[in-house]
């Protein structure tokens, strides 16, 4: 007797991986179009990212003589695979495929691997521009990871106090009990503050202005990416797009877990739910990444670090305190 469930899971996983890749690149195209319009430009065609990827795949893959070759070639694969595996853990309007095998903490790690892989690959390239970029990438990673951990743990703690759920780190937990409905008015403000701080992390996670300091075209000539070309660069290009969409998807799963069937009269658990989820992720990306990137200048690395560690971290901490206060007042 063949175990059909494994085959079913693998098939589903493949579908989700390719769909996520496609949607990420499509969103990248939409982003370029929207930003272009904000800057009074016409912008590239919507499918430009796909054209770019196709071109990069055809190009020669140059590995510098000074590079540590296996590390240099391995890191783009590590970055893309870890970025894309994330989607197997995120509930897309329906329970995630690998739901019972992973939780929020794993997702946090998966989100941190691409920047680490980028930094390692950059160090392995032996270029001084890439080395500066890698240092910046790591500083940035350390600064925003603080904020994310506060957000994740406030959620877990809130769920553990208010619900009987034992697996509070599960990504399906917020979907079952939307956090906004568990708290009173003070806690509501607290969650809003957590949302703001998470949105502020978005440019850092996605490598967008004002936090694109690891690439910083005019300063260090694309920094971490400077020595990559051809196939490797295509993988990293996709990684950047997938990271942006992945983080937006995580924000949606945590903060906006409601399904479309709550608002409009449609049958439950159809294909409309993932589409609604993608729309929500698109809105999150628009406000946290696209809009901001057209409206501000790039930070310097110390300014970005200070921004995340002091300002955003304080906002997140204040959010946590407000939730704490709310629950204490309501007698939990």
């Amino acid at each position: 007797m063949i175990d059909y469930t494994i085959a079913y899971t693998i098939a589903n996983a493949l579908i989700i991986i390719f769909a996520a890749l496609f949607i990420s690149l499509l969103f990248h195209g939409i982003e370029r179009k929207i930003v272009a319009r904000m800057q009074a430009r016409i912008g590239p065609p919507l499918l430009q990212p796909f054209i770019d990827i196709k071109k990069l795949f055809m190009k020669e893959n140059i590995v510098p003589d000074s590079a540590v070759k296996w590390l240099f070639n391995l890191m783009p694969i590590v970055a893309l695979s870890s970025a894309i595996v994330l989607f197997l853990y995120i509930p897309f309007g329906m329970p995630a495929i690998l739901n019972e095998h992973g939780d929020l903490i794993l997702v946090l790690y998966l989100l941190s691997i691409p920047p680490l892989a980028l930094a390692i690959g950059a160090f392995a390239s032996g270029s001084s521009f890439a080395a500066v970029g890698a240092q910046r990438e790591l500083v940035l990673l350390i600064s925003y990871e603080f904020v994310l951990s506060v957000v994740i743990f406030s959620f877990a703690w809130l769920l553990s106090v208010c619900t009987q759920n034992t697996n509070v780190f599960s990504l399906n937990a917020p979907a079952l009990n939307p956090p906004w409905s568990l708290v009173g008015p003070i806690g509501f403000i607290g969650i809003a503050l957590l949302l703001i701080s998470t949105l502020a992390v978005m440019p850092g996670k996605a490598g967008k202005i004002p936090a694109d300091i690891a690439e910083a075209k005019t300063e260090i000539a694309e920094g971490v990416l400077v020595e990559y070309s051809g196939f490797n660069l295509a993988l990293l290009y996709m990684t950047q797009a997938v990271r942006t969409f992945g983080f937006a998807a995580l924000i949606v799963a945590l903060f906006f877990p409601w399904n479309a069937s709550i608002f409009i009269d449609i049958p439950k658990d159809t294909v409309l739910e993932p589409i609604f989820f993608i729309l929500k992720a698109g809105l999150v990306m628009f406000f946290s990444a696209f809009f901001i990137s057209a409206a501000v200048a790039r930070f310097k690395v110390d300014q970005a670090a200070r921004f995340y560690i002091s300002t955003v971290f304080s906002i997140a901490l204040l959010g946590l305190l407000l939730i704490l206060l709310d629950l204490t007042l309501r007698g939990f």
Binding site: Q39, R41, I209, D212, T218, A297
Partner: peptide
């Protein structure tokens, strides 16, 4: 100057 500090919207506005 705006482009050097990553503020491309102003680059496009001034050049327009």
């Amino acid at each position: 100057a705006a482009h050097e500090i990553g503020f491309d919207s102003i680059l496009h506005y001034t050049w327009l």
